[in-house]
């Protein structure tokens, strides 16, 4: 059902775990299937210096989360913001059609984290 790349990210997820000293934490949840994801960012200047995730979800959700963190690490916030759910699924070499919604979680959580971070900065400036 899943390709080798998906299985690899499920079996050996990159950047998994908590980040106690994160600058910001983003979250997303799928109303459709109940999956939940948290993403932790360490930001230096305008770049994502470190990233971690935790996911409650199926194999596709876990693999998408892992893949997203690889894609976002080292990118500027502006660049990372442009990563879409489709990009994540494509980078994984595709997901079964019924599982496409599981990949939505990942990019959504990252967007949430970035928005929170930028909102916080704005708040600090004013």
């Amino acid at each position: 059902m899943y390709n080798e790349k998906v299985i690899d990210h499920f079996t050996n997820p990159r950047n998994v775990g908590e980040m106690p000293d994160a600058d910001v934490v983003g979250e997303s949840g799928s109303f459709k299937c109940g999956d939940t994801m948290k993403i932790y960012l360490k930001i230096e200047g305008d770049r994502i210096a470190d990233i971690k995730f935790q996911t409650f979800g199926c194999g596709a959700a876990i693999a998408s989360s892992s893949m997203l963190t690889e894609m976002a690490k080292g990118k500027t916030l502006e660049e990372a913001r442009r990563i879409t759910n489709k990009d994540v699924a494509a980078e994984l070499g595709g997901l079964p059609p019924l599982k496409m919604h599981c990949s939505n979680l990942a990019a959504d959580a990252l967007q949430d984290a970035i928005n929170r971070y930028l909102d916080g900065e704005k708040g600090a400036q004013s």
């Binding site: 899943y2 299985i7 499920f10 079996t11 999956d35 409650f56 979800g57 199926c58 194999g59 959700a61 876990i62």
Partner: peptide, 14 residues
């Protein structure tokens, strides 16, 4: 608790 069944099945299958 805290685990999604499909992930569990996938892990077992491997």
């Amino acid at each position: 608790n805290y685990i999604e069944g499909e992930a569990l099945l996938l892990g077992l299958d491997l």
